[in-house]
Each structure stands twice: as C-alpha cells, then as structure tokens.
Design a protein around this nucleic acid. Structure first.
Lengths: 351, 351
DNA sequence: CTGAAAGCGCTAACAA
DNA sequence: TTGTTAGCGCTTTCAG
C-alpha cells in the first residue's frame, strides 16, 4: 500500500554512466572491467547507499549455492544429534534463498574418516563450509586450504584459531561451569558436592569440559568456603565399570548432597541412580540432548544447563548463507550462546 | 551448482490448460473465473504440490502489505517495552518480504485511547493486525469486525476467545507459577515463603497473574507440606506505601526465607530491599524486562522466570507476515513460549 | 573491456 | 470470463 523505494543496480549503472552488466561485474569482481569504471561504480555504491536485494539475486541465479557441512556423525539423542536437528532447520530456512546444505559426516573417533569427509568436500566443491572440528591438527591445514580457495567457513561447537572464519557458534564452557556451580550453591550452601566427569577414552581428543570443571572449582573456592568437592571419572562405554566406581564413591561419602555431571551424559548417571536410588540428591547436568531431557523429566536429574544446541547449529547455517548470498557478515563473529536452565517444569516445547 | 526444481504458476497454467493470469486469479480469489477453471487449477495445485515463491511474489508486488500493531504504550524497561523490542526485530525481518509494520499504541489505563487506536487502524486500512488486548469488552467487537472484513489477526500476550485468530503468542501463566514454586522449593524445602503481588489499581483489568498465584499455592500444597506462604499486595505507584506495607510484613515474619514477586515488577521489590537489606533472602521474580534484569545483575533478585518476551513478539510478526505473504499458517496456532530461568550468571547476551 | 537483452517466478494492468 | 504482457531487481549469456 506504499511504494517501495530502494536503490537498484540500474540506479548504480546510471549514476556511474555504465551498464547493469558492468556494475554486476565489479560488484562481484568477475574481472573484465577497468580500474576507472571500478572506482566510478564503487563511488556510486557509496553515495547511493546500495544494498543488494537478496531475493532478486537468488531468483536470478540459475544455480544453487552449496554449503558443505562437515560434522561428526551421531547416535540418536546425543549431542551431535541435537546439532543435526538445528542444522536441518537452518537448511530448510535457507533453501528458498537458493542455498543447499550437504552433509559430510565423520566418525569422531576416527581420524581417517575425517580426512575422507574433507576430501569428499573438496572434490565435490562448494561455496561455503560449516566445520565442527574434533581433530585440531587435521582441521588446521584444511581451513588453510579453504582460505586459499577463498571458500568462507564457520566453526560450530569449537574453533581452531581465529583466522579466516566468518563466524563461530558455540558455548563459553568456563561460564557454563560458573553457572552450574552457582545454581548448585543456591540449593546447597555447604557440605559435599560430587563432580562426575567422563573419563577420556582417547587422550588425543580435545576435552572441552576441563574449562567447565575448572570454573566449578573456582566458583566454589571463591564463593562457598563451606563446600567440599570430590571428583570421580566414569567410563562412558562400560556400565558395569561405572557402577563399581560410583558404588565405591557413595560408600565412602554417604553425606554427598549434590552431584554435577560435567560432561554431556548426565543420563548415564541417572541410569545408575535408578538402580541405586539416593534420597534428596540434587543432580545437575549439561546439555539438552534428548536423553538428558528424558532423564530430567522422568528420572533423577534435577536441572540441566543448556547451551541451546539446535540454535547454535541453526544459526551457523543461516549466517553462512547470508554471507554467501547476501554479502553480509553476522553482527558478531564469535557467538557464545545463551545458557539456559532447565528443570522438570520448563521442558514445554523442547521435548 | 545444481538446477532448481520447483513448480511454478506457469507449470500450473499448463497443467490446467489455462493462462498464468487465470491461475493467479483463482489462487488469490480475485474473482472473474468460472467454477470449472477453479477446480482445474486447484487440482493442478494438489497434483504438482505447488508452493508459491514468496520472494518472487513480494518482488512483483508494487505495493507493500501493512501489518497494524495495536499494543499498549510503554515506559522504558517494562513489559511492553520488551515486547516492542521483539516487534521491531520482527518488522526488520519481514521488511524484505514487502511487509511494513505500523504501530497504533494505546494507554492501557484508558479505554478511550484503545478505541482511538482501533479507529485509526480501521481508517488507515491494513492487511493484518497484531493485537495485544487489555480490554476484553472492547477487543471483542473489534476482532468481530476484522473477521467480517477478512483481515487476519494474531493475538499477543493474551487472547480473547479462540475465534478467528491466525495465532496466539504468549505464556502459560499457570505453568509459570508451577515453575516458580518448583525452583523455590529446590532452594527451600520448608519454612516461610512470601508472595508479593501487585495490587490492582483498576479492578476492570484482567489480572493474568491470578493463575500464576494459584499455581504456586497448588504446587506448594501438593509437594511441600512444610512450606507456609503469606501474601502481601504492594502499590505499584507509590513507593512510600510499598515500604510501609513491606516493613509491616517483615516485622511480623522475620523468619521468611524466600519471596516470589508474582507480577512483572520484581525490580520494585529490589528497590525496597536495597534500603532494607535482608540476609539470605531468595527472591524470585518474573519477566526479563530491562529493569528486572538490572535488579538480577546488580541487586537482590536471585532468579527470574522468563517467557522470552521479545521472542513472543517477534514471532507474532513473522507468523502474520508469512500468513499474509506466504499463505501459510504457523505450525501451531496457540504458542505458549518456553519458560526460561535466569540468574546472575546466565545473562550473557540478554543485557 | 562493455552493453544489450533474456529470463528467474510472480503480479497487475490491459485487452479481448 | 480469460489471455497477454510488462515489469520487480538481479544475473548471465552473447555480441560487440
């Protein structure tokens, strides 16, 4: 019901005294124009305040842009599954912009499979990459390659260096530890707290949760002199071993009132508690994976700190698509997502 | 890098044996076509699974669509300010789709101003309405009018009936009460809890927080027999009166360990506590308004339950725009937003 | 190196 | 009632 105003390529062309075709060439650096015209056009862009119409653009493009997504494969209900969910949502959202998301998944316990995913990506070709890195030494040369080839990329979950990435979406692990400790301290001002950590199967992996644990220690030692903490490491793979470890701990420390599971598998601790119930134990876990949410709803987990995994993944897709199609970078390069607190009673819409 | 497939009006036209113009007419019910062609076209739509290209559409439209937004005016940092923030975000997001959002604000203490806003809206004309209703008896005939005129509308914050609205975005107040009580019960299993409520200035207003208070009572009486609650009503407008009321309460009940402020103005309770500090008082409030967040960060509020106000507002705009421009309804009609829990240590990115 | 022109999917004005 | 056609802002041939 009102006219649209907005400066177009045609306006630029007129202002610069050239044709639309020429404007397009300098805008996209497709070569075949002189320095002089380049300047004229760019000046016109400045003066008129040109902003491209993304929709017209994607309509005119006969070909799609491809985003290659190199992320770990996953079991149902785990961390990378949640990420996958968000990536899919993002893919759906950018599809009408003419951007297609293709997956190259790898086994995060296998360096070889990562190499393979990388090769595939490079072979197929793409206009942008979303990288969920696990192996630093393997990822580094890869992003170097991307930079050479002028392929934009965004990190998800973790980032390797600060070099040429368009953006990063992930969590501030230290802060997540502070929050977990804070919540626990609200429930319990003094006494014993148990920290349950994942034992490292593969010492070569980067263990992102060390920062989290450090934060918890820091918080308690600064704010809660009355709290004593103990750590146990549990075996992710073997339930029998887990059981023995935990039995031993609880035998020695029956006075424990809270437990913080610092890795992403609070549901495994819940499994233990189902068999060996403890009265009034406050259990705090991390990450809104399906399994953890189930343990929160039906089991013995009292609260979960979440980083909105699907959102981080979704945002990574959208921001990369906007960069590729709309020439615009995200407002902030490093995006540490909001940490949420979940209990039995605010799961609505998540599960 | 791959061809786009997707069925277009042209495809429909060919399939139905008519022209694009005719297809457009039946698609938009612009009249001037026979029943027979209508059927042919609609069948083609079914068979080919046609979905309009929203971007092509908004490009071809020389005129904008207008969304009229009838919501309460606000003071800085209060509930409707947060809503406004989200509405603005939404407006920015749908602008490239050729949708403009226009505001008609009213004073929520004045029925007359609401009437005026409604009249303005009707006079100016629009393609859709977002309504934040306060006066039920005034809103009802208005939405009746909208239905007659075939103008789609969505409710925000509260809804009046379930009639012709495209969607509703708001909170489940009862659930928010349950959550608040649950969180409080995590901190304190027994003893005294103070409920602070807003005293009604205007008894004609719908008080949405009664459900919340009811839920708190229900939760405690079901799960926490050891907890006793007391309610006080405080005067929103007059600080001196507030002070007196609260002084009197604390004199009588020095044993109180938690307080729940059930309205949206926890910051006013914080103001009181700054002048009359209480040791170890757990204070829970509602809503992530700027003032409340400040009281959480720097003051005596321990936790805030939030309904993601900006998000509810933003979604209302986006869903209405999609309905108007993209012919598609939101997936769920009634959207009760996720309830968040905020503490000092997860304000990042919100403030 | 540059310009002209066709066309992406859709709407809207104008003929018929 | 229906078909035709000219754009919307942009990219992309294809000739110069």
């Amino acid at each position: 019901m009102k006219e649209k105003e907005s400066v177009t390529v045609y306006d630029l062309a007129r202002a610069a005294g050239v044709s639309q075709g020429t404007v397009d060439r300098v805008l996209h650096n497709r070569g075949r124009f002189s320095e002089a015209t380049r300047d004229k056009v760019l000046r016109a862009v400045e003066e008129l305040g040109y902003a491209p119409n993304m929709y017209a653009r994607s309509m005119a493009q006969r070909s799609k842009r491809i985003i290659a997504c190199i992320v770990p494969d996953f079991e149902e209900g785990t961390y990378w599954d949640s990420n996958n969910e968000g990536l899919m949502e993002g893919a759906a959202e950018v599809a009408p912009l003419g951007v297609e998301v293709r997956f190259h998944r790898y086994d995060y316990t296998s360096r070889k499979s990562f190499k393979k995913a990388v090769e595939e990506t490079l072979d197929e070709g793409c206009n942008g990459v979303i990288l969920g890195p696990v192996f630093d030494d393997l990822s580094l040369p890869f992003v170097g390659r991307l930079r050479e080839m002028n392929i934009p990329f965004v990190y998800i979950d973790r980032k390797i260096g600060n070099d040429g990435d368009v953006a990063f979406y992930g969590t501030d692990f230290y802060q997540s530890g502070i929050l977990g400790a804070h919540v626990t301290s609200l429930v319990q001002q003094e006494g014993t707290v148990l920290l349950v950590a994942l034992s490292q199967i593969e010492p070569s992996f980067a263990d992102t949760t060390v920062d989290r644990r450090q934060a918890i220690f820091d918080y308690f030692s600064e704010h809660c002199p009355g709290i004593t903490t103990y750590s146990v490491e549990i075996d992710t793979e073997n339930e029998a071993v887990r059981e023995k470890t935990l039995d031993a701990f609880f035998a020695e420390h029956p006075e424990v009132r809270s437990a913080i599971v610092t890795n992403t598998r609070a549901y495994q601790f819940d499994e233990y508690l189902r068999k060996h119930p403890k009265k009034n134990l406050f259990v705090l876990g991390y990450d809104d994976t399906r399994r953890n949410l189930k343990a929160l709803r039906d089991g013995n987990v009292s609260a979960i700190i979440t980083r909105g995994i699907p959102l981080q993944a979704k945002n990574s897709v959208i921001s990369l698509a906007n960069f590729i199609q709309g020439d615009r970078r995200p407002e902030t390069k490093d995006n540490y997502l909001h940490l949420g607190i979940l209990t039995k009673h605010n799961l609505h819409g998540l599960f």
